[in-house]
Design a protein around this nucleic acid. Sequence first.
DNA 1: CGGATTTGACCCGCGC
DNA 2: GCGCGGGTCAAATCCG
Length: 316
Amino acid sequence: MDCSSYINTSLDLNITPYRVQEKVPKKEVENNFFSLGMTNFSVKDETIDELEEELKRVTAENKKLVEMLSVVCENYNALRSHLMEYMSRNPEKELSTISKKRKSESSNNNNNTNSNLIGVNNGNSESSSTDEESCKKPREEEVIKAKISRAYVRTDASDTGLIMKDGYHWRKYGQKVTRDNPCPRAYFKCSFAPSCPVKKKVQRSVDDQSMLVATYEGEHNHPQPAPMESTSGSTRSVSLSSVPSSASPSSTAPKVVTLGLTNSKSSKDFKNNEPRKDSPKAAKNLVEQMATSLTTDPNFRAALVAAISGRLMHNN
DNA sequence: CGGATTTGACCCGCGC
DNA sequence: GCGCGGGTCAAATCCG
């Protein structure tokens, strides 16, 4: 995982749209604030000056935070490469910790659960690395394995079912209690199209019983059916941990909210996607949506905590 | 009544 | 060759 790109695209808390308008006459700045629904602001020049100063200060702070996050991520990547190096030097130790079973599918599920939960995208790399070791015969299976993706769904603790609504129609054809997990694993086939080869396995995580782990195998050869009401109505939130070659059902992809407004490219796209003649209500909704996205994104919060704690430790 | 789900039996690959 | 375990099949059952 290279989290620097993540920072650039998702973590930029920025305010550049306003910075861009620094040369804009103050009257227009006022209008922009009005258009954002902040009608409580005074329109006096002093207030605007104060706001601009505050804006600069926050911008500088944001810049520092981004730099700190970059450092943290660099350190993380360095540590990770060290770990990889160490593990490659001591393969026997690594192998001893893994299940004896050569068939890596189930063990991968569990060994990678934690890393996936913190946003490590290992779907493709994992299958390529382990398959090279375990499967010496190049067969069709490898092609299928290359299209394996995983989704994690948090459910209510009381929810004992393994039904996971993701927009496709699935027919359950089996259930099995596996050795490494007391919770039964359910097997589903895509029933929307008779010829669709996609299968999925759903099992509760060993570590977190409220977490459903769905493994998708194959690629849908049909368009996604009409959206189901339960997809959005459910309290479950689906997040794909790996995104291999369009194999993952699009409906399960997490809602992506790009926050990189200081990023020139993304902010440009942002502007292109949003009509300039926003109504105040729409602008307000947009701001609220951005704020909600920031505050509810666990990755963002984790990164922020890491950055702040790192800063504090650095100062101490 | 038809489609979906359940569940025991069976198949197959792998390790010993 | 045998046992184990994951994956699949298919008859029985459930449910709208």
